[in-house]
Amino acid sequence: MRISGLAARLVLSPTVLVTVVCFYGCAVWTAYISFTKSSFIPNYTFNGLAQYERLFATPRWGVAYTNMFIFGVLLVVGALAVGLLLAIMIDRNVRGEGFFRTVMLYPLSMSFIVTGLAWQWVLSPSIGVQHFVRDLGFPNFTFDWIAQQDRAIYTLVFAGVWHQAGLIMAIMLAGLRGVDRDIWRATKVEGIPTWRVYLGIVLPMLRPLVVTCVVLLSVAVVKSYDLVVAMTGGGPGFASDLPGKFVVDFSFERANIGQASAAAVVMLGSVFAALAPYFYVELRKRGQ
């Protein structure tokens, strides 16, 4: 008995070590660097908040950080709206449900690199949609957002929604299937229109799932990296830069580990801010 209990602890000890050292130890290390004078190599002289002050005075970071919110809000709202709408439609007893589910979910199996490249081609002015519509006989048609300083960030939203909407659809559809059939029968007897049942009764019941989806998407937004690398490379210039790319570039290419660390800590803070609604729901559940 005792020996076996020991085996369980032994088996878990590498995981404990990895958790403490690789996840938390490394995070603390990065946080520490962000409060030092480090530039292209670490310099462990304490320097207060100087890195953060410099970071937020850097135009490129301003763009990247603002982009995170633009991209984030649009992606969360877009993916949630599309996913929910698709789930509701598929739930209306459509034929070929398997086909629709398959088509809507396959993007999830593709990497963000592949997704970004494919969308780069779809939206490319020289070969994509613009070229296609011009060939149809509208020579003045213009759709070159991906090449526009102030529009490129929105093109990432197309690709992001394309990739994530299926996941939201799958989660929501599972939720819709779990709704008590008696509710549908009762509302039918009462003659309440379907859309009002969804809006007034079913969706409020799915609120915990909506919160889960919002949290999932928000965390994915903060972590976004590959998509922007493949699709726009952060460009034109650094117009579509995101914090994830900023940190990697400054860690390895631009070699400013102090700035990279400060930016990484801001990313970490943003993730925990995105998780807040989840903790709020959990705490309320426990409180009841």
Partner: peptide, 18 residues
């Protein structure tokens, strides 16, 4: 709990020390 929270730490925070 520690593992679950660890899963939310962006790679970027851990990359350089790793």
């Amino acid at each position: 709990t520690a593992l679950m929270l660890g899963a939310f730490i962006p790679y970027q925070v851990i990359l350089y020390p790793m």
